[in-house]
């Protein structure tokens, strides 16, 4: 074995291990600061127009809404998928009520019996400006929802500009949503 080959054989493992090590260290420090989340779900619909849909309302909570109505809005709207059977959604409610003072939130009840969803929304005061029922989860599939609660920020004209796959609270609103509102 000549010197060059031996050099390669000794250098490659060290360089490889070094690159991996630095990368891992960056990932760990980003995980701590919250910049890197291996479990984050990137929604492919972000940056695209909303899919078309028409949904009925919930009993006692007015009519549902359609994509045309959402597109016709002049202010950004926060779309929130929820369900009465979802524990994080229960925990999310006070945060949503706080956010609803700043901007309209439209709720979509995902795979839920209309009477259960209506009772759930009205229990402690509804944060939603409008509510619709996605009884069989068909609309959620078009939106690329992977679980509830999930939220989308829709710009006037009907383009999705942000997606969050965790329960919302005022901190997330301040950190993620408000800066995007300023840009509109």
């Amino acid at each position: 074995m000549n010197a060059t080959r031996r050099g390669i054989l000794t250098a490659v493992p060290i360089i490889g291990a070094g690159v991996l090590g630095v990368g891992f260290w960056r990932m760990l420090s980003d995980m701590r600061s919250g910049a890197f989340d291996p479990r984050a779900i990137k929604n492919p619909n972000v940056g695209k127009p909303i899919p078309s849909f028409a949904m009925p309302g919930l009993p006692g909570l007015g009519d549902g809404f359609t994509d045309a109505e959402l597109k016709a809005q002049h202010r950004p709207v926060l779309i929130n998928f929820f369900a009465s059977w979802c524990i994080p959604c229960v925990a999310e409610m006070p945060g949503l009520r706080a956010i609803s003072r700043n901007m309209p939130i439209w709720g979509i009840a995902y795979e839920d019996k209309p009477e259960n969803a209506a009772g759930f929304v009205q229990r402690d005061g509804s944060p939603y400006a409008r509510v619709a029922s996605d009884r069989h989860g068909r609309v959620a599939i078009d939106w690329g929802v992977t679980g509830v609660p999930e939220s989308f920020l829709v710009a006037p004209g009907g383009r999705i500009i942000w997606h969050g796959s965790a329960a919302l609270d005022p901190q997330i609103y301040e950190a993620e949503i408000r800066p995007r509102l300023a840009g509109l």
């Binding site: 891992f24 990932m27 760990l28 995980m31 291996p38 479990r39």
Partner: peptide
């Protein structure tokens, strides 16, 4: 990798 949660 498994314990640190880097890999999903």
């Amino acid at each position: 990798l498994v314990r640190s949660g880097i890999l999903n």
